[in-house]
Design a protein around this nucleic acid. Sequence first.
DNA 1: ACGAGCGCCTGTCGGC
DNA 2: TGCCGACAGGCGCTCG
Length: 280
Amino acid sequence: MPELPEVETIARALRIGGRVYPDGSVGQAVQGQIIQSAAVLWPRTVAYPTAAEVEAHLPGQSILQIGRRGKFLVFSLDRDHLLIHLRMSGDLIVEPVDRPLAPHHRFWIGFQDGLRLVFNDPRKFGRIWLTRDPENVLGGLGPEPLSPEFTPQEFFTRLQKYHRQLKPLLLDQSFLAGLGNIYSDEALHRARLHPLRLSHTLQQEDAGRLWQAIREVLEEGILKQGSSIDWVYRGGDFQDSFRAYQRTGQPCPNCGTPIERIVVGQRSTHYCPHCQSIDR
DNA sequence: ACGAGCGCCTGTCGGC
DNA sequence: TGCCGACAGGCGCTCG
């Protein structure tokens, strides 16, 4: 599920609790909990250091703070930082330790009061890191799109710097942290920019519209608690606000022209051929 | 400096 | 019904 709004939704739920899962149970907060045990069920889930070291180093540490950087969840512990990337199909679930382990559980942390935090990930693409310095992992990320440091002027300048198609550029986490396939298609549609338009051809006004559109779709996404699509229900409602993503053949909300689907960088890309013209 | 292709994985869906 | 390809919210790698 994981783009910025979904990861932010999960981070908030782990901080304050109250997330309702598909089975109707309600997840509790885990911020402040003391880790009692840790188990890695699929060793390749651990990107760094090793499954054995993760299991050895986590017990005894407290979860002081739960944050997000781009699509990474950041757990600040007494000594280390636990970083989790959900990739395509990962999710974090808080449940009682006496519940049987589900087939797609890859990693879990047990707490003193009988709860555990589980990393569930059917496709096994998700990764975790345990490191003293989170910058080792997060250092290459581009700006945080909802932060005050991300300004229209700075965005315009960096768009000029590259001669790249907008869609792959927006998906590049070193350019901007947090956008994925859904929110980049939605942002480009709202900004009325073609996904293959080259970044350096944007005028300041185009860049300003794109900057605004990115902030809008992310803020709306967070407000709606992310997008729920396909067979994995997540609880968010932003899918009801899609204007382009997965709307191939359906009318553009602006002009009625059928939305088209092309493949860019191996990813489905949805856009309105009328509103999002390739030439300015 | 770019974009394309592929691998990593499991599951769902539509067509035949 | 069963099989088979296309496709899925991500990203790191190689290759031109």
